[in-house]
Design a protein around this nucleic acid. Structure first.
Lengths: 130, 130
DNA sequence: ACTGAATGATACTAAACTTGTATCATTTAA
DNA sequence: TTAAATGATACAAGTTTAGTATCATTCAGT
């Protein structure tokens, strides 16, 4: 099971580069140094913008800047933007079939673990990763 | 991302049934009540036996029993047997290409989180889940 | 011995997710 | 007007997960 997929890894590297640069950086400018295929990086940067982590400016000379300081961008934010929210806990029986859904012992335990992981990934910030 | 895949979920249910039964249970006897396709359950039970969580007896009247008391079978054991060890941390660059492998900040953080999750899944036992 | 019920091992198919590619539309500065 | 950039979206390939099928082996009961 991967917590950090390739896309998350790319996203962290790209954001670190944006943070270092201070000014705006284009996807093309990011992809090269990071060793990431340009179209992939574009998709990732778009997801980060949709998630409110970066702000983009279009057109010639455009690019991406951080929407807030690195210390206020968490690994959890990045994962959520790129992959959607964490879900350790996909009930096999989808709630409909399983009457124990609310009381299921496994699910309760796993939900608790998931909350801890969420705490952890929110505690790590881009500032720690740059 | 799923910590609990369908197979792990099945495995927990099946083991809980074995624990309740006290005596040995066959895959066929387990699959029905749990609502799991029989061949799937067989594969899972085989994995659990290979992992030393259950002991099997073959031939007529055979089946599965727990290899040790429920309190000593952890969710971590079950996950490891069915899916292999947890790996949050698949380095994108596979170590060969990436010179920062040892110092990579992201990897260090994620490894720490992984250790915590390992602690957690080892702390939950089959006895808690039955 | 024979038979039927059971696991061991393994190969295969199907579905879902991840990764990477391609295209076209829109915006903006020069 | 043009070139450089993002927005949106559709598509293809690769990998993982889920489920199926088969044959070999073991063992109790007759």
């Amino acid at each position: 099971m991967k917590l950090i997929t390739r896309e998350v890894d790319y996203a962290v590297r790209a954001l670190a580069a944006v943070a270092r640069a201070g000014g705006g950086l284009s996807a093309a400018g990011l992809a090269g140094p990071a060793g990431v295929p340009r179209p992939v990086l574009r998709k990732i940067m778009q997801a980060l913008s949709r998630g409110g982590i970066t702000r983009s400016s279009r057109g010639r000379g455009g690019g991406f800047v951080l929407a807030r300081p690195p210390r206020r961008i968490s690994l959890g934010d990045i994962i959520a933007a790129v992959r959607g929210p964490l879900k350790f806990n996909d009930c096999v029986f989808g709630g409909a079939l399983c009457h124990n859904h609310r009381t299921c012992l496994l699910r309760g335990r796993v939900a608790a673990i998931e909350r801890k992981v969420l705490d952890e990934v929110r505690r790590v910030t881009l500032a720690d990763l740059s």
